[in-house]
Design a binder for these strands. Structure first.
Lengths: 199, 199
DNA sequence: GGTAAAAATTGATGTAGGTCAACAACATTT
DNA sequence: AAATGTTGTTGACCTACATCAATTTTTACC
């Protein structure tokens, strides 16, 4: 198998049992794209017409509220990514998707996606499994940013998304748990210091 | 058609084109349950084995963080409801689902759900559409509670979920936008007063 | 390898919304 | 219709985190 497609195939295997035949069909409609760091996949207001798979690099989702960028997610290599509301409903995206490293993406258009659903026997199961997984991810992000104090949100993020914790730059992690970079830095300092005193 | 099933049928029609034949098959496996106000559908730690439809009343989802109840959603009549992570993955629920009025529920078990997916021709499309809609709802809840100040979160909730705004008690709305009841009351007061002065 | 840009740290100060507590307005039960 | 519980309002005070700004550290680029 072509080398650049192995991660993709592996991910699909995790999500569903795709026959070789089906995979070959799917493969024939895949498209490819590279992004330089800081380039945009989608900007707010545009309609997101593709479902992406991050083959290399990281893509962050953020929106702007009261003039401030709020990062809501970072898609790591080996995961699907899109602006869901925009892709599924064909409405303008509320969010921006931006490469935070150089990236290699695999993607299919909405049309191709619908073709996959209607022609591949495993297509709908695959889509259901992807959606389920992403729904649960979103729940986790949501639940971990509710009413906990900043330090606990920080720890929770580490628990739930250890991979992100390792590779995503601090400033984006900070934004994901809704604290400012300065506060984030203080949290880290507090955690690294061998418990001075707490009165 | 039986009266008690009309809202359910109407909702399914909105989400997918279910043939009469398929609907009859589906109907034959539906189960029914009533809940008194304050009764629980699911408690944290239990495994949620059913997919519910709220036929009458309201069910709220909440979790407890640092000893405080945080309401994350209220399912109004005419909508599906479950503890998604628990139902789909068969793991203990992080959330509690509690009736906030007397309720009438229609539900199917996980087994029945899988039967629907594999036997009804429209089953998977239906499931996909439900999941899509709920994913987008969750995104909306998530995005509207990010970094906006309390007053803007309040307004946003009103925009995005006008039905909820009308029928859900203040204390739950407050919790949904992550403010305390006291603060919520002050927000409402501020909005109702004909702009005294803002310096 | 030197310079510029980006990311992270630290200090001083400010404030939105939390906390606590008392009370008022409704609802529900008997 | 009295009693009890639930929900919403208001006041006085407090604190976790934001803000602003200066500096250091790290990374990226001719």
């Amino acid at each position: 198998m072509k080398e650049e497609i192995q991660l993709f195939r592996k991910t699909l295997n995790r999500l569903s049992n795709l026959s070789n035949d089906s995979f070959d069909k799917l493969y024939s409609i895949l498209e490819f794209r590279s992004l330089k760091k800081k380039e945009f996949l989608i900007k707010e207001g545009e309609i997101c017409r593709n479902l992406y798979f991050v083959n290399k690099g990281m893509v962050r989702t953020y929106l702007i509220q009261d003039g401030i960028e709020v990062t809501t997610w970072v898609a790591l290599a080996g995961n699907f990514d899109t602006s869901a509301h925009s892709f599924f409903k064909g409405i303008p995206s509320l969010t921006n998707l931006q490469a935070i490293t150089d990236c290699e993406l695999i993607f299919i258009s909405k049309n191709a996606y619908e073709q996959v659903l209607s022609t591949l026997p495993e297509g709908k199961d695959l889509a259901l499994n992807i959606l389920q997984e992403y729904y649960i991810n979103l729940e986790n992000m949501f639940y971990s940013c509710l009413s906990l104090p900043a330090l606990e949100r920080y720890n929770k993020l580490g628990e739930l998304f250890p991979e992100h914790f390792k590779c995503v730059p601090q400033k984006y992690l900070a934004s994901m748990i809704r604290v400012k970079e300065a506060t984030m830095s203080r949290l880290r300092k507090k955690l690294s210091q061998p418990d001075t005193e707490e009165v």
